[in-house]
Design a protein around this nucleic acid. Structure first.
Length: 705
DNA sequence: GGGTGCGCTA
């Protein structure tokens, strides 16, 4: 009902209003929300407009209305075009700010990723005599720096009586989990009298992030018993747990649930499902789902690319990247990191360089992960100088960056430099991990530094508190074996705290081949065949040793055993990159379009090598065939085919780079040395162990591999 | 008095 006209209050002109007064110049029939200044504020989209409105509000006295003032603060603190410093100035002009107003500023700091400012502002306000409410804490917990600060804020929660607010509890759990204390997170969860779907999702994510995915999944079951319906976020978290736990069955169940509950088109959920299929090794299902997605984002593409890389399908990862570009999707640092990893495996340095240039051109941020991927790519492609350059340009380096560089130097045979870097790493305050020591031991092994290597191995547990794994034991066996200390290596294996595996015994066998120790070789081979009678590599190693000491009967017997047991030799495969395209060769390969030219080149090559003194070394040929056939087989080894292709398709004098999946055989090694001289080419071959840099008739490994 | 806060995929 309208008030009688005669009783209307007299409103003073704005200039006479007391700025501290909380009364407003609006009547009940004109609520403040529809005041023209506030309507202006609704459409405001810049700070200069905001300042005009603010000034006008001060002049008209509207600013003394705390609601109006709060709208000004909210714009400055929360809008993209706002300004937090200005919000602070406005805040200081408000005589009695409400909790809403300072909560808004705290949230503004948190949203803009200014956590320090958020907490400092909170402290300042509290010291000014104000008190928090239940809305204050969620953004504060997001902003808090560490566990200590989080605990202090938790005390405030209790002190001010908000410990049973569900929002506060949910963010509290998240804070504890993210700041390193899963136990406290669980304690909060267990104490909750009412749990929302968010509470469950938060705890499921916490378990997953702490690598306790199976507990995450059982929590999901418990949630369903409690009649809480999962929503999209719940499913995303559960799928992440499935991915980490490699639980394909569960992922499939969630997939069914999604289809039954009309969640099959939710972008994030489907993307999480694609990831779960990738991680459980079902690239086919992942691809099918991806292809059927009505919309995709960068996450979806990155997940597929990473999926292919982790599935060791590097070429498909690169093909997929082309498809991504064809779809007009711009890659980011995550995409680049996965692609560089693919290049590392393929030895595709040209492509790797292209990616590096792309990163620079597109100003993609080189974070620690991407920088490390670049170092690793250059190092694994044998470009140790480029690797080193990128490494030293990195503003930040973590243990993986140092480890990549150390491992790269080790693979190239630069043992001294690798060890120097190891001490440099420690001076810079980065602690080595188990992988670092694999690099260190490999460096010692390739350089024949037996005592140093053994001393590093001992220091692992007593100085660095790192328990050596079977891989480290394998490195030491390799180290001793290569240096000719075969008996010591055998003794070392006997005293290992775990059963030797294929790589440990294979290392010993390899050493026996180099040093012609038949007695130990036979014992090692027997153990190796007991361990895994189907492993073709073990038979090949044994047969090679018999061959190296001209025990042809034994070679024959090993070969017959293989045939009897229907065991195939692991296929050798070589990759060579020409003009950014990776070509793959297997022995006797004729699948290349230029096959005829390649074989003509090969014939010429063998002829010229023979003139230069090449005699085919048939001792490592396993197949039952006559001498001429053996020679033919040797000449068609994948690395020789790859080199022939390289010779006909690159400019004279340019470096040839080959990646081989197995160790390079003695015959090819000898041939490569001669090729480097006869054709005046540097040849860099990465085998499964190390780099061989052939130049001018000799190899960087000094025939020691 | 009004208007606020949480969990999600590489």
């Amino acid at each position: 009902m309208a008030a009688p006209l005669t009783l209307h209050p007299i409103i003073p002109p704005p200039s006479l209003q007391n700025p501290l007064s909380k009364t407003t110049n609006t009547s009940k029939s004109s609520p403040i929300k529809t005041h023209p200044s506030l309507l202006h504020l609704e459409n405001c989209n810049s700070m200069s407009q905001l300042k005009q409105i603010h000034g006008h509000m001060i002049r008209t006295g509207l600013f003394s209305n705390v609601y109006a003032a709060s709208r000004i603060v909210a714009f400055c603190a929360l809008e993209d075009t706002g300004s937090l410093p200005y919000a602070r100035i406005v805040f200081d002009q408000i005589p009695s700010p409400t909790k809403f107003i300072y909560n808004t500023i705290i949230r503004g700091y948190t949203n803009r990723d200014l956590p320090r400012e958020a907490v400092l502002f909170y402290r300042e306000v509290m010291e000014g005599g104000l008190s928090p409410d239940n809305f204050t804490f969620p953004s504060l917990f997001q902003a808090c720096a560490d566990l200590d600060e989080g605990k202090q804020l938790h005390c405030h929660v209790v002190k001010f009586g908000f410990a049973s607010d569900v929002y506060v509890q949910n963010t509290l759990m998240n804070m504890y989990s993210n700041r390193g204390c899963l136990t406290s997170a669980k304690r909060v969860f267990d104490k909750m009298s009412e749990r929302t779907v968010v509470s469950w999702a938060t705890m499921i994510a916490a378990y997953t992030n702490w690598d306790r995915s199976s507990e995450a999944l059982s929590l999901f079951h418990r949630m369903q018993f409690g009649n809480v319906r999962p929503n999209e976020v719940t499913l995303v978290n559960v799928l992440t747990a499935c991915a980490r736990a490699r639980n394909l069955d569960m992922a499939k169940k969630i997939h069914e649930y999604m289809m039954e509950n009309q969640m099959g088109f939710h972008l994030v959920v489907v993307t999480a499902l694609v990831d779960a299929y990738c991680k459980t090794g079902c690239m086919f299902l992942a691809r099918k789902l991806f292809d059927e997605m009505p919309e995709r984002n960068l996450f979806s593409w990155n997940i597929m690319i990473k999926g292919y890389v982790e599935d060791s399908d590097y070429k498909e990862a690169l093909v997929f990247f082309q498809e991504m570009q064809g779809n007009g999707v711009k890659p980011d640092k995550v995409t680049m990191t996965s692609l560089l990893l693919a290049c590392s495996h393929l030895g595709a340095v040209e492509l790797g360089k292209w990616l590096h240039a792309y990163i620079n051109k597109e100003n993609i941020e080189v974070d620690v992960a991407l920088g490390t991927a670049l170092v690793d790519m250059y190092a694994k492609c044998g470009c140790i100088e480029s690797a080193s350059r990128v490494f030293y340009e990195m503003p930040q380096r973590d243990v993986m960056s140092w480890t990549s560089m150390i491992g790269g130097l080790a693979m190239c045979g630069h043992a001294e430099k690798a060890l120097e870097l190891f001490s440099e790493m420690q001076s810079s305050g980065v602690k080595p991990d188990a992988v670092t020591f694999v690099g260190i031991l490999a460096a010692c092994s390739h350089a024949g530094l037996v005592d140093k290597g053994c001393s590093y191995f001992r220091s692992m547990s007593c100085v660095y508190n790192i328990e050596p794994t079977i891989e480290h034991y394998g490195c030491v066996v390799d180290l001793l074996g290569r240096a000719g200390q075969i008996e010591r290596a055998e003794e070392f294996i006997k005293r290992m705290p775990m059963k030797p595996d294929y790589f440990v015994l294979g290392g010993l066998l390899g050493a026996c081949r180099i040093h012609g120790n038949l007695e130990v070789a036979e014992r090692a081979a027997r153990k190796l065949l007991d361990l895994d009678p189907t492993n073709g590599g073990a038979y090949v190693l044994l047969s090679n040793i018999y061959g190296s000491v001209q025990k042809w009967d034994e070679v024959k017997r090993t070969r017959e055993l293989m045939a009897e047991r229907n065991i195939k030799k692991p296929p050798g495969c070589s990759l060579i990159e020409v003009d950014g395209i990776v070509h793959e060769f297997v022995m006797g390969d004729k699948s290349q379009p230029q096959s005829d030219e390649i074989y003509l080149m090969l014939e010429d090559l063998i002829h010229r090598l023979k003139v230069a003194g090449y005699v085919p070394n048939k001792s490592e040929v396993l197949i039952d065939m006559d001498e001429e056939e053996k020679e033919n087989a040797l000449c068609r080894h994948s690395e020789k085919l790859a080199i022939s292709y390289g010779l006909i398709s690159t400019c004279p004098g340019s470096t040839l780079r080959v990646v081989k999946n197995l160790r390079v055989c003695s015959d090819c090694h000898f041939a490569m040395k001669l090729i480097s001289k006869v054709y005046n080419r540097e040849i860099i071959v990465r085998d499964r162990n190390r780099f061989h840099h052939f130049k001018d008739g000799s190899c960087s490994c000094r025939d020691f591999w």
